[in-house]
Each structure stands twice: as C-alpha cells, then as structure tokens.
C-alpha cells in the first residue's frame, strides 16, 4: 500500500468499517463467514449432486408449467374450484361418502357442471396423450442412436484396454 495520508473521508470510512467489523465479530458473523468460505468449494460439489440437481430440475419444470398456463385464468379457476369444493364437500358427505352406483353415474352425467368438468379432463387427456406419443418417438430415436454408439464404444474400450464393469 502507498504510504500517502488518508483523506478525512477515507479515515471516516475506515473507522466505520472497523466498528462494523467489531459488531460482526461479536455476533459471530465473521466466524460464520469463515466457515462458509471453507465450505464454498465443497458447496459447488454438493449443489451438483444428481439428487439435488433433480430437485432443481423438477422445481424449474413446475415453474415452467405455471408459466405456460395463463396465470390469471389459473388463479380465477383455482379460486372458484376451491369455493365449489367447500360447498359440495360438506362434513356430512365426508363422514358418510356417497357411492357412485350406475344409476347415480347416469344422473351425474346429465349434470351440466359434471359435463363441463369431464370436457376439461378430456382436453387434459388429449394433450397428455399427444405428449406421450411425441415423447415415445423421441425416446425411441434416442435409444436407436445410443444402441449404435454403444456397440462402437464397447469396441473402442476393449481396443484401449479400458474395462467395462458389468
């Protein structure tokens, strides 16, 4: 460091920093920071543990789903759904749940609310089915590609004398 004199502002800043350091020290925060700085290289590894990564991926996936469904429509629907549930799911019904006999089912099917709910379920099933189809195709393509690569990889490994643990 240069041996120039400090300006009054620098002096004041340093004094405040020293006061702050004392407080942080007394509260154990410096200790904690020290511990954390020891941990940080390890933290990188732990964050990349497959299980942690999968949790991250799932959260990100759920957030993505919430993003693609229009949030206004979604919150209005959820609100009304909960209201309707609280009206329908009475304590009496919950303690003695009704059974859906064939006759009752026919009656429910004529109910316009049930008809609308069913239509929504079919829309969901349609999108779900289409996605299963696309995924199956993509997965098959990938497996075909991997099969071809694996045969080559096995050959190369044995040529180089690198073991394959079966």
């Amino acid at each position: 460091m240069k041996s120039e004199k400090l300006t009054p502002r620098q002096e004041e800043a340093l004094k405040r920093l020293a006061d702050l350091a004392v407080k942080l020290h007394e509260n154990g925060i410096i200790d904690l920071l020290e511990q954390l700085s020891e941990l940080s290289p390890k933290a990188i590894s732990y964050l990349a543990e497959p299980r942690i990564l999968k949790i991250g991926a799932n959260i990100s996936f759920m957030l993505h789903i919430l993003e693609v469904i229009n949030p206004t429509i979604f919150s209005v629907m959820m609100n009304n759904f909960i209201n309707a549930l609280s009206e329908e799911m009475t304590p009496e019904k919950m303690t003695d749940p009704p059974r859906a006999t064939f006759g009752k089912m026919l009656k429910y099917m004529r109910d316009p609310d049930v008809q609308r709910a069913l239509a929504m379920i079919f829309i969901f099933l349609k999108a779900f089915g289409a996605s299963i189809n696309t995924s199956a195709e993509q997965f098959k393509k990938m497996m075909d590609m991997m099969e071809k690569q694996f045969a080559k990889m096995r050959e190369e490994r044995s040529k180089r004398g690198i073991p394959i643990k079966e």
Partner: peptide, 23 residues
C-alpha cells in the same frame, strides 16, 4: 442443461439422464 452419465461411463447400459435445470 445438465446430464448425469452413470449408466454410460460405467457399463454402457443406458443413455445419460439429461434435463434443463433452468431457463
């Protein structure tokens, strides 16, 4: 993106498990 390679590098028994962690 992230990939996990256990099945590939140990015994060539399956593809890597890959996913998008964030976007």
């Amino acid at each position: 993106p992230m990939c996990e390679f256990t099945k590939v590098y140990k015994d060539l028994s399956g593809p890597p498990t890959c996913g998008v962690l964030g976007r």
